[in-house]
């Protein structure tokens, strides 16, 4: 096991253009499951590829286990990587795919079978060893790719969107398996995804990236409840956080905190008249799209998320009193869009 650290890591693909990764400094904890989360083009894969040694940084340092590895080739970094496409070797059987890193690293031949069987057993693919990759389903290929990654017991796992090729149902079970797997091997893991549900469910901590810059590093709870800026606030959460501008601040609150006023007893609330424009019925919940009427926020678009346990009657066209607990409000500076200190209502 090892800690991965980057110091001011930068990658510029074309001189004069904005970097794909800009001065990223971060460090994993020992045995941690760290998730790089960001939209496409945010630089998360480039960052991972630099850590793997598949991309040369323009500047900055990469450390694995306390040692600077910038000058080391991928094979010298004691890492294993699972690619988005799995990158199974098409001309080799499953057995030879899993044994490939052992052969490439010149592990004595007599150890191959034991190690391959151990890895295959751990992932439940012991019966597939004779097959070729083209004869496997998506889920099986993913497991073969994982088995190939663990077989030589690397110091760090790098996973590049390994679930994105699976269908929704398989993805949920694969996610769970991957978590179990990480718990059982305990190797430091860096996981790249654009799927916030995956990030929230699996990550010990999440690194939110946007345009090659780290916007926030924190536990899933941190980044969801205390976003560092408006990008994080709107990127995480579906539907995203409501943001309303008010003089020099932006006030944010989650759709699930914006509820019918009579359901929120207690004193410290901010009340609004809320006109529902249309309703999305999603089974376990209803999502209301509407606008505030009157006072400071006339006709601001606001989303509310009501659990199915709440009473019905919030139909399109109706107007109600809604409120948010003051403790659920988040404030952002209007210029920098970064977090600002809370202010008492009416926020002046």
């Amino acid at each position: 096991m090892a800690v991965v650290e980057t110091r001011n890591l930068t990658k510029v693909f074309k001189e004069g253009e904005l970097g794909a990764v800009n001065k990223v400094s971060l460090a994993t904890h020992e045995g941690e499951f760290l998730v790089f989360l960001g939209p496409s083009g945010s630089g998360k894969t480039t960052l991972l590829r630099m850590i793997a040694g598949l991309e040369t940084p323009t500047s900055g340092e990469i450390l694995i286990g306390g040692q600077v590895v910038n000058h080391l080739t991928p094979r010298e970094r004691r890492i294993a990587m699972v690619f988005q496409s799995y990158a199974l070797y098409p001309h080799l059987s499953v057995y030879n795919n899993i044994a490939f890193p052992l052969k490439a690293q010149k592990v004595p031949r007599e150890q191959h079978r034991t190690k391959v069987e151990w890895a295959a057993g751990l992932l439940g693919i012991g019966k597939l060893l004779g097959r070729k990759p083209r004869e496997l389903s998506g889920g099986e290929r993913q497991r073969v790719a994982l088995a190939r990654a663990i077989v030589r017991e690397p110091a760090v796992f790098l996973l590049d969107e390994p679930l994105s090729n699976l269908d929704a149902k398989l993805r949920a079970s694969a996610r769970e398996e991957l978590e179990q797997f990480h718990k059982s091997v305990g190797t430091t893991t860096i996981y790249v995804t654009h799927d916030q549900v995956e990030a929230m469910a699996m990550g010990d901590r999440i690194v939110v990236l946007h345009q090659g810059v780290v916007r926030q590093i924190g536990t899933p709870k941190d980044v969801y409840e205390d976003p560092a800026d408006t990008f994080v606030a709107t990127f995480l959460g579906s539907p995203p956080m409501n943001l309303v501008e008010f003089s020099d601040v932006i006030v944010g609150f989650r759709p699930e905190s914006f509820l019918p006023a009579d359901l929120l007893p207690g004193a410290k609330h901010v009340r609004f008249r809320y006109k529902v424009n249309y309703v999305e019925y999603l089974g376990a919940e209803r999502v209301l799209y509407g606008a505030i009427e009157g006072r400071h926020f006339e006709s601001k678009e606001i989303i509310s998320r009501l659990s199915w346990t709440m009473p019905a009657g919030y139909d399109a066209g109706s107007v109600h009193d809604f409120s948010v607990a003051e403790s659920d409000l988040r404030f952002f500076d209007r210029k920098t869009e970064k977090r600002a200190d809370p202010r008492p209502y009416p926020w002046q």
Binding site: A52, L54, A80, M81, F83, F100, A104
Partner: peptide, 9 residues
Amino acid sequence: DAAMVDGLT
């Protein structure tokens, strides 16, 4: 890339 990570030049 995978082959290089797995130990080849």
